Simulated assay, not measured.
Amino acid sequence: MTSAGAPERSGTTRGGGTLYRGDLGMWSWVAHRITGVLTFFFLFTHVLDTALVRVSPNAYDAVIETYKNPVVNLFEVGLVGAVLYHALNGIRVMLVDFWEKGAKYQRVMLWTVLAVWVVVMIPGFYFMMERTISDLVGGH
């Protein structure tokens, strides 16, 4: 017992880790924060490069041209994946917060979010990378 009379929690385990560290809920929290920060930095960069059109249309065209390569296309797929996860998980977080049974079903909802994410990202990856892969292997 601690001095305040509450039981100590050290050594409390759940699923192989401590109560919070390493649990699926913690990783969804971490992924939500990372995808939010990545989305913010994309939007910040997007505003800056779009603002170039007012300063110098030629500079804007040059910047946009640098985006037309396979690496940037792969980053775009990552961006779509990050935004999609962030949006779906945000809905889950709202349900956990505002639905009286949300906490009870939060793990099921997380698995649902991940399943929907995979189902959407598989064709999304294909359609976003189709032209890049075709160009790389010498297709049309």
Rank of each mutant, 00 (worst) to 15 (best):
W99Q: 04
G90E: 00
G11I: 07
L52T: 01
R54A: 14
T12D: 13
T50G: 09
Y67F: 08
L43T: 04
V83C: 03
H46F: 11
T13D: 02
N73G: 11
Y67C: 00
G36Y: 04
V119N: 09
T132F: 09
T112D: 01
G124C: 04
G138E: 04
T2E: 07
E130W: 13
D49R: 14
S28R: 15
L74N: 08
T112P: 00
R92T: 00
M128T: 06
E65G: 04
K68C: 06
D61R: 12
V37S: 07
S134T: 08
G90S: 02
V77Y: 14
T12L: 15
N89H: 14
S10L: 13
A4W: 12
P70E: 10
V93R: 11
M1L: 15
S56M: 11
V71Q: 13
W117F: 08
G102W: 00
L43P: 01
V63W: 14
A82P: 05
D49K: 13
A6Y: 13
L19R: 13
P70Y: 07
L24T: 08
V55C: 07
T66E: 15
E8L: 09
T13L: 12
W99N: 10
Y105L: 02
Y105P: 00
V80Y: 11
V116L: 13
T35L: 06
W27I: 01
I34L: 15
V116I: 15
D135N: 14
T35I: 05
G11N: 10
W99S: 05
L24M: 07
L88G: 00
G138Y: 06
A87R: 10
F44R: 15
L24C: 02
L110K: 03
R54Q: 12
R21P: 00
K68I: 10
E76D: 06
W117D: 01
V63G: 05
L38D: 01
N73S: 10
T35F: 05
H86G: 06
L136S: 06
L74H: 09
E100I: 01
F127I: 13
F42A: 10
V93Q: 09
F41L: 15
W111G: 03
E76G: 13
